[in-house]
Design a protein around this nucleic acid. Structure first.
Lengths: 341, 341
DNA sequence: GTGAAAGCGCTAACAG
DNA sequence: CTGTTAGCGCTTTCAC
């Protein structure tokens, strides 16, 4: 005997499948008496409707998807991801909607994954790490799969979009460094393909007016260290480095120290993302908090709306904050805060 | 016009659905000629089989599930989770198996989530954060849903189990502290319901022989701080505190400092889990690395085997390592390592 | 208010 | 080698 089906419940309650179905969906009036019998029978048998069969019949998976192009390795040490997922789940859990995660390392794999989502795995997807003119946008449009884009996607799209202002805090940071007398401020960016990397880099360029000290990293500790080495080897080395994430910043900071530089006296260092431990580092790391949890929640909520047919819209969240700490000197935070949320 | 179905491909190729199905599954020989026609038609129409319909027909979802009882909030600041997921995905991605995540905050919600998994969302689940005599084990057995248990589950079960030795590094740590002359060593544990919390606490008790300085936390920064306060208020305060995770350790360390204590001179502090930034804290935090990524990969791999009918087995991974750093004095690591993987 | 029957898109016998 | 025929478990017309 396999798991109970709607048929089992129906015969146990002396009604037909249709009635059981309607008793639970409430899509048509059922007499209290029979409804009670049906509910009792379902309880008794421990029946739960098969989400699969239901999905096939209704074309609704009751799940949303995320396809990650990132390497699992990067996922593992990323401050953004777990908090973002936590936010998504916070929006999903009360509605009993599931989250389907799939990582794909090739373009073809990614397409297959999205197609699988569209074929019934998920009712919509949230798209992370956008590139300029990202192929996924037209692709998903053609697929007809609802999507919410995370980040400042610039090209036209029919999708909802959850934006944040990443540029403002970077400008603020650079201004702060300039005000402290720094004249050689470097930037180790993320891959320039990403919209978010570009936005941060542009803000940096806007304020410094030169790309002489701009280096492109890939968010890993390795490039954080290597590019720091490269910068410090310059005839006229920078006195401050702004990294596009905390991981690279930490790696760079450690490396600089291993070369005998004092932070922040000899070199000011700042990250981006504000890992929850960054405030506790030595010295506490200046960073930009971006509230990934809230972004996840808002994105998921919007996706659910889009799926239910509401028109897409663009939401701009005010959730990026510069956290000035000792690593850039002139801390405005107490030495060992317990939290900086 | 909706998405193409197997029927569209079939008629486009001038064959029947069955033939198309077999052409792709390879479950029976197809003449090269017709196979070519079918593949061409499928390409042409951009057809991907509906995982939904396929799952319904085969009773195989091609997905595995994880139901999280944790609060999203805890998820967000947890060092274990993202790395674990990364490992799981590393095992899943090449097979194009998806991961279905669902968080549930009530017991009833959890049961529903598991039932939904069993009804077709997933072919098996990996179970985290086991309690002693965990209700989920018999529950899942009754459900007939394959599962892999993570951690040292002690009661009999028909499930595969991926174990690690959490006790050894804790013993080693306490011994190290004793050897340094500490006599009042405290422990801030996780919730004692969890098997992993118990294992760590037992190892501590085994070495110290007393529970006078044992306090039960919940892995959050809040209890890390509060219980540290309680311990430091004792007439005879501890000179060393071993925390059950890094988050509590950091919070405790910060709090102790705010009271004017020097780390490690006045108070030695150690965590557990080895967050990737812990080695960079001030001072670097002694912790226990547990290679969650590998555990995720092994667990997922084993689950896939179980699902395919292989007999369950218990695997013990040798992947816990004590990382002695400055926070307990007598560091054995260089001041600012870039990595401690 | 409830029942009967026709699918959703696929796979799996059973034929030939 | 390929076609036919039933389902998988649910929802949803259309009747009554």
């Amino acid at each position: 005997m396999g798991r109970p089906t709607i048929g089992d419940v129906a015969s146990a309650a002396g009604v037909t499948k249709a009635t059981v179905s309607h008793a639970f969906s409430g899509k048509r009036p059922i007499s209290p008496a029979t409804k009670a019998r049906i509910v009792a029978a379902a309880e008794e048998l421990n029946w739960v409707p098969s989400s699969l069969a239901r999905a096939l019949a209704t074309r609704r998976a009751n799940a949303i998807g995320i396809v990650l192009a990132r390497d699992p390795e990067i996922l593992a040490s990323d401050a953004f991801f777990p908090a973002f997922i936590a936010g998504v789940e916070a929006a999903l859990a009360p509605r009993e909607v599931a989250l389907v995660l799939q990582v794909a390392s090739t373009r073809a794999g990614e397409e297959r994954a999205y197609r699988a989502m569209a074929q019934g795995r998920a009712d919509g997807v949230v798209v992370l790490d956008l590139h300029a003119a990202d192929w996924r946008v037209p692709f998903l449009e053609e697929l007809g799969l609802p999507a919410v884009l995370l980040g400042a996607y610039e090209d036209a799209s029919t999708f909802s979009c959850v934006r944040t202002d990443d540029a403002a805090p970077v400008r603020e940071l650079v201004d702060h460094l300039l005000a402290q007398g720094h004249t050689r401020i470097a930037h180790v960016s993320g891959p320039m393909g990403y919209v978010h990397s570009r936005v941060r880099a542009s803000a940096y360029l806007e304020r410094t007016g030169s790309d002489e000290l701009l280096r492109q990293g890939d968010f890993t500790a390795r490039t954080g260290r290597d590019l720091t080495a490269e910068l410090l080897d310059l005839p006229e080395r920078p006195t401050a480095i702004v990294y596009a994430n905390d991981t690279m910043a930490i790696a760079g900071l450690s490396y600089a120290r291993s070369r005998g530089l004092r932070i922040p006296e000899d070199l000011a260092v700042a990250g981006f993302d504000d890992d929850h431990l960054s405030a506790h580092l030595s010295p506490p790391l200046t960073s930009v908090s971006t509230d990934p949890r809230r972004r996840g929640e808002v994105a998921a909520e919007q996706l659910l709306l889009d799926i239910s047919g509401r028109p897409p819209r663009s939401i701009t969240l005010d959730c990026t904050r510069l956290r000035l700490r000792d690593s850039t000197g002139a801390s405005t935070e107490p030495p060992h805060p317990r939290s900086n949320a």
